[in-house]
């Protein structure tokens, strides 16, 4: 070997700084790419036999019915607290009668889809990551492959589809119970006129507001379940790594919900312009 070739070439300071800066960027795009690949595989396997509807129903039950108590509790108090603050603010202008419309709109467009997604991330997303992580470290995922069952089709596709389907439904439940909470606070406790509450709500809210909330919820369902499945499916190691994957799944799921909320809300704004 030529002696000169074995001498390391000194790197410029700029190159070193560039390399250090490039690392997180490469990491981010790699992370995004891995998620996209998993989503793509999950979607491809959705249309290939066998379809196994039982797995989809089981996941819908886990994500939807299983989350119902927490959604009802959080939804009721979110509506009530929202009404409490709105009444306090509107009283400054003597316009408490608009509380039904204000809370209804904020629930439909923002509070219901976001809070539902965050609750389901915490409950079902963490459960998905833990279950898949445990299956990975105990070789259950390898066992599926030995029976010629594609693990992505069997484990990931039903969870993503069930989340996309169930999130909008749970969001509507959140809306309904939130309105009940708002009504109880505003009408029964704060003494807002019942006719004004209902009439302004009916006049100022629109089915398209609920449609926007449902679309947001479906997108959140896809992102939170993808984050959970990705973290659980790719666990390497033991119980500690499963715990870390669960934490990462909840953090990634929650962050993705809040980030997507901005972009999806912005995009929906162009399709559903605000009408006074």
């Amino acid at each position: 070997m030529n002696e000169a070739s074995s001498v390391p070439v000194p790197r410029g300071r700029l190159a070193v700084v560039g390399g250090v800066l490039a690392l997180p960027i490469r990491g981010f795009f790699g992370y995004l790419g891995d998620h996209s690949m998993m989503l793509w595989k999950a979607l491809l396997w959705l249309f290939r036999r066998p379809f196994r509807p039982r797995l989809f129903l089981e996941q819908m039950e886990f994500i939807g019915v299983g989350s119902l108590p927490i959604i009802l509790l959080v939804g009721f108090f979110s509506g009530a607290v929202s009404a409490q603050q709105t009444v306090r603010a509107l009283k400054l202008f003597g316009q408490e009668r608009f509380v039904g419309a204000t809370v209804g709109l904020s629930l439909a467009l923002e509070l219901a889809p976001v809070f539902t997604a965050l609750m389901i991330t915490a409950r079902a997303g963490s459960g998905m990551a833990t279950e898949l992580g445990s299956m990975r470290i105990t070789e259950q995922i390898d066992a599926l492959s030995t029976f010629a069952v594609n693990p992505v089709q069997y484990l990931v596709t039903p969870r993503i589809v069930a989340s996309v389907v169930m999130l909008p439904i749970m969001t509507m439940v959140f809306n309904a119970i939130g309105l009940i909470g708002a009504y109880i606070y505003a009408v029964i406790i704060a003494g807002v006129d019942v006719g004004s509450f209902i009439e302004h709500f009916r006049y100022l809210t629109d089915p398209s507001d609920y449609l926007q909330g449902a679309i947001k919820a479906a997108v959140f369902g896809g992102s939170l379940s993808l984050a959970a499945c990705y973290q659980g499916y790719n666990v390497r190691g033991g119980a500690k790594e499963v715990g870390l994957a669960t934490t990462r799944a909840v953090v990634a799921g929650s962050v993705s919900v809040l980030v997507l909320d901005f972009f999806v809300g912005d995009a929906l704004g162009t399709f559903f312009p605000f009408q006074s």
């Binding site: 445990s134 299956m135 105990t138 070789e139 259950q140 390898d142 066992a143």
Partner: peptide, 8 residues
Amino acid sequence: FQYAALFD
């Protein structure tokens, strides 16, 4: 499998 890998 080493630890049977039964589906929980």
